[in-house]
Design a protein around this nucleic acid. Sequence first.
DNA 1: CAAGATTAAAGTGTCGACAATCGACGATTA
DNA 2: TAATCGTCGATTGTCGACACTTTAATCTTG
Lengths: 248, 248
Amino acid sequence: MRPMSLPVGLPALADSDLVGQIARILMQAIVQGRLPPGSKVVEAGVARELGVSRAPVREAARLLEKQGLLVASPRRGFFVRKLEIRNIDEIYDLRLCIERHASVLAAKRLSPGSRDMLRRQIDVLHRTADLDDPARQVEEDYRFHRLIFEIADNRRLLRLFDDLAAELRMVIGLIGRLYDDPHEIARTHEPLLAAIEAGHPERITAHVDYHIGHAWREVGRLVRELTPPLGNATEPNSILFPTNGASV
Amino acid sequence: MRPMSLPVGLPALADSDLVGQIARILMQAIVQGRLPPGSKVVEAGVARELGVSRAPVREAARLLEKQGLLVASPRRGFFVRKLEIRNIDEIYDLRLCIERHASVLAAKRLSPGSRDMLRRQIDVLHRTADLDDPARQVEEDYRFHRLIFEIADNRRLLRLFDDLAAELRMVIGLIGRLYDDPHEIARTHEPLLAAIEAGHPERITAHVDYHIGHAWREVGRLVRELTPPLGNATEPNSILFPTNGASV
DNA sequence: CAAGATTAAAGTGTCGACAATCGACGATTA
DNA sequence: TAATCGTCGATTGTCGACACTTTAATCTTG
């Protein structure tokens, strides 16, 4: 493609895998809330903004549809998936299921190196707690749990976690801050890691149940609170690139 | 104002979902072995054969890529995923994880109606065993397990199972017949259903572990047998069948 | 005769175009 | 006034085209 219409400083779309890059850009726009749930993704608009044609945009949208971030309505287009409480419950139910499994697997395959990585990530969580940056906190929290899935060493499991996490980050991003005390996040990870180090499946699943279940209830509560105002307002202007003005 | 609802009772599903149809056709071709693992999916060839252009074919291929049936090699095209033993293990590992969960959920939500459906499906399995039709047997086996996921009532869990099942059916289809005694298949489902009816989580998971684990070991053994012993000629990854440039 | 260089064919990645369709808006009518 | 209908712009679904890359086939050349 000819990247002529792209202003400088924006993500370069030069090299191959254009579809993947567009999918990533769209995903970020959704996760960061610039494309709020229920809003329409206009193919031509995205294409124009990125300086590409509609074909790769459509393919990227198909991927995000399969991933669950978008829903396709025939002859009407793609829409950002709405966050009904039913979706939240289904996602967390599945998350809980696979995270239990991944944690037990990770315990089996835990090496000194991977153990240190988990420990260091908890330290990062503690340090991030001082920054008063909820988005960053969520990001580092995600990293810790992703590490567990990496250690579990099942690529399919990891991909599934990434898919779920994308939706969860969208939810959490919209909620704002998840916990009142950011240090609480960091602390709750420690007994989980301890259980993994100990390697007792029952203790591990119990801690995962507590840890994820807590987040589940918290997110569910907050989503229920936010449900009425979460309307269907579509913003026409500049949605793909961060401009400070986050809608909703 | 409330938008007028579409006429009810009529076939609500749009029949003009070209991408979905192509995806289904491709999936069947893969699952039925007409597109063996490793073979190339030529966009223009598929498009010509179906009388459409390449655009919807590409979108369908993207979906199947995300699903795991195809892998995309940049500038080289889409290929049917090769069935390395590692993939088999990962798929069955995940399958085991979610089927345990789904079975426990199904037990919680079991109604007399759904219980009867499971019972009837076991009857179907027994009757199918007399037909000496391995493909049909696999199909009805799939139906039973899918019922469990339907009863579990988590749409995301069900979609995930369908995705995994597509790949598993490809594997099993290539192997030919899975068990020596088809009636064995039907019989092994009965204690599983009994455990679900009893509703004891531990018994359920134990039976699922046995049931799925058995299939896992069996498929693993057969795939290992079918894997060419001299696999170092082409790729570091072993494939189930030598590449066979087929165009649907 | 084998190995490398050269050329031709096939196929992908992307684009712009066009008809079909949807949704909003205003005109028409009861 | 409120509901219905028709028109029109906006958007989707699909197509054919073209440049570039990969693959194969053919031709040297030691």
